[in-house]
Nucleic acid binder design. Structure first.
Lengths: 260, 260
DNA sequence: CGCCAGACTTGATCTAAATCAAGGTTGCAT
DNA sequence: ATGCAACCTTGATTTAGATCAAGTCTGGCG
């Protein structure tokens, strides 16, 4: 599926790095820059110490496998920087990316013994890994944390339903418009709000990933983005950024009004 | 979207019936024929009494609206008989059915103030309705119930990811094969296991619903089912049943091996 | 017990997006 | 700086499934 640096979140070679000092680790969650934007926001100071104690921080380069389809579901992850792609594959290699987890999102929940999906870093990713027994202890010890997780999974389910509508019933044009707006929203939630960022979308993934996410081919994605650019609805910006010039028009397209 | 009996789970006209006697109601969950197959299995006898006390039972005819897209999310439901369809729509009427909830499944969870999806009965449906405050009390009072709900939502999310793979990357033939096998599995979980039922699939929904679930048109669904019948992979049976004559072949098709 | 409406099937034609096929760009490694 | 490999774009052609268009089947009701 993906190219070169085939490291793993469990056997960390390549760029994978554990934070070393245990005493610094107690502070990790307390000073985490995205703790208000994630599950961790359900925790008080004591809880944050418990979180830090229950997890290890990993730093992973682009293209690293975090979770392998069909492998034992040993851990749960919280993304604290960068973007992760989640996907499912058919035996012949066709692939569907089921979501992108940006900073503040979790991944790796599973009821079964094995993961039913794969996960791989898109860019440089920092994440916190909770082994299953430790996650379960946290859920039991901190009811607010469990409640927050239930809410987060419920939200993911609503997102998944929205994506099913996109995959089953939207045209290529509508799919790409929806994607760009979603990436703008993701950027707003993630970015450290220097307000230059108005109408910016962060698109760290390749055309292949976008196509596999939208149920299209790379050619169709490319053509559609080019068409939007020609119509002055968007403009390319530096390093994997796109500026959205007409949110309103894109919103119309995304929701199926043929307006353009 | 759907035809005539436009009743509602909140303003029950038509065939909607509340069980009347309060004292009989205490027993309801205790004697429920599907309690081992649903969320309720997490409850002991005392818990079941609390469940019965917190919910009302509704009996709804085919085509009844249970939940309306965009309406306040006031309740949570547990289906105890029949099949419910969940869907999302675009402004111009295009519709995606995101899932069918058979007996034993829940629906109606929402983090937002309003439902992001609609729900409607497919056939005669019996369900238990929990108003939100009552559901929340149950979650707080019965940690095993909350844990079970978390597991159930996690499973639904995995199902949704599987459906995204189907919608984004499978051919019409593969979609229909997958659907028929899923309906067989649903029937096995639901049916009162008279063992005649081997290889039977229950298909109470119309071609329109199947098409809206698989991201196809009714014509393509019809043609594909006809082709499977001609190839002797399936055979029609009495009242909305299909007998699967070659599970193995259908499994191959569903997973993308071109074998037929 | 035969009519009718809704559900389903089948065939002919069309089209959005896939596939096939060249290039063009970019950025990193030498 | 240069070369190459991965990534992206654009054009020509094909095709799976949509759309358009008749029918046929079914079961509930008078």
């Amino acid at each position: 599926m993906t190219s070169s640096p085939q490291t793993s979140a469990f056997a960390p070679a390549g760029g994978a790095v554990h934070t070393p000092k245990a005493d610094m680790d107690v502070m990790r969650c307390l000073v985490c820059d995205i703790r208000n934007k994630s599950l961790c926001s359900s925790m008080d100071e004591e809880g944050l110490a418990a979180l830090a104690h229950s997890s290890r921080q990993l730093l992973l380069p682009p293209g690293t496998t975090i979770v392998e389809e069909g492998e034992p579901a040993l851990a749960f992850f919280n993304v604290t920087r960068g973007t992760v792609k989640l996907f499912k594959s058919l035996p012949d290699g066709r692939r569907q990316i089921t979501g992108f987890a940006d900073a503040g999102q979790f991944l790796g929940l599973s009821t079964a013994q094995t993961y039913s999906f794969g996960a791989e870093t898109v860019d440089n990713v920092r994440l916190c890994r909770f082994l299953r027994p430790q996650l379960e202890a946290l859920l039991s010890d901190y009811p607010t944390f469990e409640r927050r997780l239930l809410a987060a999974v419920t939200d993911k389910l609503a997102e998944a339903q929205e994506q099913m509508l996109l995959l089953g019933r939207k045209t290529a044009r509508e799919k790409v418009a929806t994607f760009l707006l979603d990436r703008m929203r993701a950027f707003h939630q993630t970015a450290n709000r220097r307000q230059e960022a108005e109408n910016m979308a962060s698109v760290p993934m390749t055309r292949v990933d976008i196509a596999d996410y939208l149920g299209l081919t790379i050619e169709t994605v490319s053509r559609t983005i080019s068409a939007f650019r020609r119509s002055m609805l968007i403009a390319s910006a530096e390093n994997h950024r796109i500026r959205i010039l007409s949110v309103a028009t894109l919103l119309n397209i995304a929701s199926g009004q043929k307006a353009d």
